[in-house]
Design a protein around this nucleic acid. Sequence first.
DNA 1: CGTCTATTTGAATGTACTCAAAAGCGGTGG
DNA 2: CCACCGCTTTTGAGTACATTCAAATAGACG
Lengths: 196, 196
Amino acid sequence: MDITPLVQHFAKFISLDEKEIELLGLLVRHHTIKNREFLLKEGEICLYDSFIVKGCVKIFQIDEQGKEHIISFAIENWWAVDMYSFIGQLPAVYSIQALEDTDLIQFTRKQYDLRYEIIPQLNKFTRKMLENAYVVHQSRILQNISLLVEEKYLKFLEKYPNLESRISQRHIASYLGVSPEFLSRMKKAKILKKKK
Amino acid sequence: MDITPLVQHFAKFISLDEKEIELLGLLVRHHTIKNREFLLKEGEICLYDSFIVKGCVKIFQIDEQGKEHIISFAIENWWAVDMYSFIGQLPAVYSIQALEDTDLIQFTRKQYDLRYEIIPQLNKFTRKMLENAYVVHQSRILQNISLLVEEKYLKFLEKYPNLESRISQRHIASYLGVSPEFLSRMKKAKILKKKK
DNA sequence: CGTCTATTTGAATGTACTCAAAAGCGGTGG
DNA sequence: CCACCGCTTTTGAGTACATTCAAATAGACG
């Protein structure tokens, strides 16, 4: 079972020996979902912590008025999980759906715990990764309360390189928290501004 | 050195034996800051990871126009830190300032690393705490992109019980990402609505 | 009591939304 | 190959939400 992309991902903070890599390989499963398929639906239990080898998913919620709100996208070398649901094995708050055909490496909840027992170093890895997520999330919260839509859009382009061309503008609008109509107008106004 | 509140905080996820508590006590320092004093100023290195025993601080940034944006408040049994600055010992992105006289238990960056070496269980604690922060942050991001100001205000009241009466409305407005004038009007409109 | 800051109120403005309709685009089947 | 379907994007008009600036009022503190 090829878990090279995952091992490379771990290598950001820790290095595993061959024995550990082998054990890890025994612990996970590969899985593929097609475009538009669901990895998780709100209300279900999130059974897997999924590492994305290739592809793209959206993590979102539908509100009472039926509007979709995208919390985040996850692309290559990111994780796709409803942390709350996965950790506590409780009904999911979010849904996760593929925006492209997507290859995953998955851990069940038990395998997730086991990986820390087998490879204690991974506690450190996950701590580092979560420390990083903490910083990124705080920064996003600041952006949400302080920036204009145009600036948030530029931050999105920075954060997800090349993703803009892979997904629809409607999805970007939902991620930014604005209507698709407004994003369309904003982009037009910005282009006109630049031409002057 | 009394670190009881900290030990109780750790007890949420792990239990320490007497030896470990003693070691921990040797590792930290107590510190007190007065209302309006700074724990950290943007651009400085964040020297401490601070656990709040008593009091309240705001974590914020001042934008180019001189406007203050409050990322979060930290009260009793919370941590006050610029994670980015503290972990990497890089210039801080945020400032942290007391809103009341505040008692802290502090770790330096070295002590922070050391605590994991001395008490490996703490890796698990911090992982759990950060998993939790991950969930809370995601939920706040969702609220920011999907809720009206009135709903965000209600979420604030839920998240920080009784804090409303301890801090100024101006600070709450800054946390919500709206002007103080608007928050004032909104509260008035809401009260009038209720009376009907 | 006076000073400083926070809150409220008013008026004008700007930002973003809704609903409806038109235009564009991509895939599928005949 | 192209005609049609479904979905996305754009455009328009009217409206709602939230801001700015200025001024008045209310509170807090030495």
